[in-house]
Design a protein around this nucleic acid. Structure first.
Lengths: 201, 201
DNA sequence: AAGTTGTACGAACGATCGTACAATTAGTTT
DNA sequence: AAACTAATTGTACGATCGTTCGTACAACTT
C-alpha cells in the first residue's frame, strides 16, 4: 500500500511529527489540550519551538492533530481488537477493551477523550466539534453493538447509555482517587446489566 | 449568628469578594480553573486586576476559594433540599436534585465539579486535593443514603456507583451534544436501578 | 554541478500571564 | 479635625504565550 516516495526529508519530518503528536496526546491527557503549550512541547522533545510550530501552523491545528492522533490510538486499542466478534461477544469485547485501555494508562491521565471532552464541552470551536464527533461515533458504536445482540431484552440505546456510564465513572474515580476498586465495580455493573438484558424473558 | 460588625468597608469588601467568586465559578465551569485568569476576571467585573488579586494573594488561593464557593452552591442546591427526607425518599431526592441542578445550568458549563475534576484529576497540588475531597464526600453521601434505604437488595456501594455514573454521563452528554434526551435516560436508569434494589426478594 | 524543495533553527514581536508595591480612596475611631 | 484602617487602584516587573520572519542545511531534481 505505502507510496513509493523515498524522500528522506519528508520521512524525517513525518517521524518528527509523530513524535510530537504522541507526546502531545500524553501531555493533553494530563494537562488538557489548552494546557499543552508549544514551547513546553519543544523543550521536552529537545527541538526548537519554531520547529514544532512549523508542523501545524497554529495551536488550533496542533490540537486538532492531537485529537486525531489520540483517536487513532483509541481505535487501535479498543475498537479494532473487537472487530472479529459479533453479537454479545462483540459488545463485551468493546466494553472490556475500553476498561483495559483506561486501566493500563495508555494515556497517563486516563482516557484521553474523557479528559479533553470535559475541557471543551462548553466552548465553541473546531476542536470541540472534533471531540464531539468522535464521542458521538463511539456512543453510536456501542449502541449498534448492543442493538446487534440477538434476543436483547429492552432498549439497546438505554443499555448502551448505562454501560458507557460505568466505564466513564470507573476512569474518573481511578484517576482522581487512585481508586483501584472502581474498575471492578464497573465490571460488575456491566456484567449484571448484560445479564439482565440477555436473560430469558 | 451574624456578627455585630457594621464596618462598611469590610462589608463592601466581602460583597466584592462574593461577586468575584460567583463569576469565577461560572467561568471555571466553562473554561476550567486554569483557564480562569485574574485579568479577564477583573475586566469582566469592571474592577482592577490588582483589586481582584488583593482578595486572594495568589492564583492558587483564588482557585481554592472558587472551589469552596462552588461547593457551597452545590450543597445549597442539591444536598440541603434533600435534608428533610429519609430512606428511599432521601436517596431519590438527592439524585433527582442533582439532575435538576445540572439541567437548569446553575453553572453555565454544567456541573462545576464534573468540569474541574476532569481538569485536575491527573495533576498534583492543593486544588486537586480540594476537588478530590469534595468528590469523595459526595460519593460517600450517596453511598450512605443508599445504605440507609430499608430492605435494600444488594450492595449499597455498588448501587451508589451505578446511579452516580448515570448522573455524570447525563451531564456530560447534555453539555457536549446538547443532548436533551440524556437526562431522561439517566432518570430512567436511576428509577429502574432503585426499583431493582427495593423489590421484594 | 546548479537549482529547488522541505525541515528545522534562532531571534524577535506583541500580548497576556501572575505577582509586587506604593499611592489613593473611603469609612471608622479618637 | 486628625489619625488610623481596610479596600481598591495604577504602574511596573519578569516570564511565557502564540506567532512571524529570515536563514541554514540536507535531500531531491534537472
Amino acid at each position: 500500500m505505502g507510496g513509493v516516495k523515498v524522500d528522506g526529508r519528508v520521512e524525517r519530518g513525518e517521524q518528527t511529527r509523530r513524535q510530537i503528536l504522541r507526546r502531545a496526546a500524553e501531555i493533553a491527557s494530563v494537562e488538557g489540550l489548552e494546557g499543552l503549550s508549544i514551547g513546553r512541547l519543544a523543550t521536552e522533545l529537545g527541538v526548537s519551538k519554531s520547529g514544532v510550530f512549523a508542523h501545524f501552523g497554529s495551536k488550533e491545528e496542533l490540537q486538532l492533530a492531537t485529537v486525531r492522533a489520540a483517536a487513532k490510538i483509541f481505535v487501535d486499542e479498543v475498537v479494532t481488537p473487537a472487530g472479529g466478534a459479533t453479537g454479545l461477544a462483540r459488545l463485551e469485547r468493546l466494553l472490556d477493551g475500553w476498561l483495559a485501555y483506561s486501566q493500563r494508562r495508555t494515556f497517563p491521565g486516563g482516557c484521553f477523550f474523557y479528559s479533553v471532552q470535559a475541557e471543551f464541552d462548553a466552548r465553541p470551536g473546531r476542536v470541540r466539534d472534533s471531540i464531539a464527533e468522535f464521542d458521538r461515533s463511539w456512543a453510536e458504536l456501542v449502541r449498534t453493538a448492543a442493538a446487534d445482540v440477538p434476543g436483547l431484552v429492552g432498549d439497546p440505546a438505554q443499555l448502551a447509555f448505562e454501560v458507557v456510564a460505568y466505564l466513564d465513572l470507573a476512569n474518573a474515580r481511578s484517576v482522581l482517587h487512585g481508586d483501584t476498586d472502581a474498575y471492578a465495580r464497573a465490571r460488575t455493573a456491566v456484567r449484571r446489566a448484560l445479564d439482565r438484558a440477555t436473560r430469558q424473558a
